[in-house]
Amino acid sequence: MENQQEILEQQVTENISQTYGLFSTIFLGEWEKLLSLLSNNNEIDEDHFLSFINELKGTDPLELKIQYDNLFVAPGYYFVSPFQESYSNDDDQIRGILGSLYEQAGIHEKCEEKGELPDHLGCILAYMQWLVHLESFAENKEEMAQLRALQAGFIENHLQWVNKLKSAVVRKLEYGFILEALQQLQLFIEYHREELSGSINQ
């Protein structure tokens, strides 16, 4: 029974890691990858909090690219900065810190290949994916606790600004996939934060 519970916990952890990976893909604008997955009848259950992704089926990637570029790339009327540093008043070292973390983790290339700065939301989510994934390497409860404390700390330090980002996007985008993704990301982060704090009854 204990074994089965552990397996379930590992499954949950891995799914949370993969969810970060999914959101990272979205916020790095990797539409071709996302759409190709949907085209293989990989529907998400209607009651799943990620089911909004199903609506992308058949969407022209160009449409998504336009939405993405105007929000996060072209510094025009619709531009909203996807970088954490833009929402921080007092910490001008964010990029340096995050870059060092990625390099130590050996996952810096993904961000660099995309030509993005370390505090880009997509890069931060990719690191969080890695951080959660590491739970499978924990050999004892102490390591697990340390790891989960790191995750909670990382959320606290580097993902709380998603609320501000969403508020900024709401001012620019009446509706659209990226807005929906941000809404659900916000809920997901909040869920994970609470789960890490142990407030959710498992």
Binding site: Q11, S17, S24, N42, L50, K110, W130
Partner: peptide, 16 residues
């Protein structure tokens, strides 16, 4: 949501 996962999540398994 995380117990049953989602159809496409497997594609986002950590690969690095």
């Amino acid at each position: 949501d995380f117990l049953k996962g989602a159809g496409i999540l497997g594609a986002f398994a950590f690969a690095a």
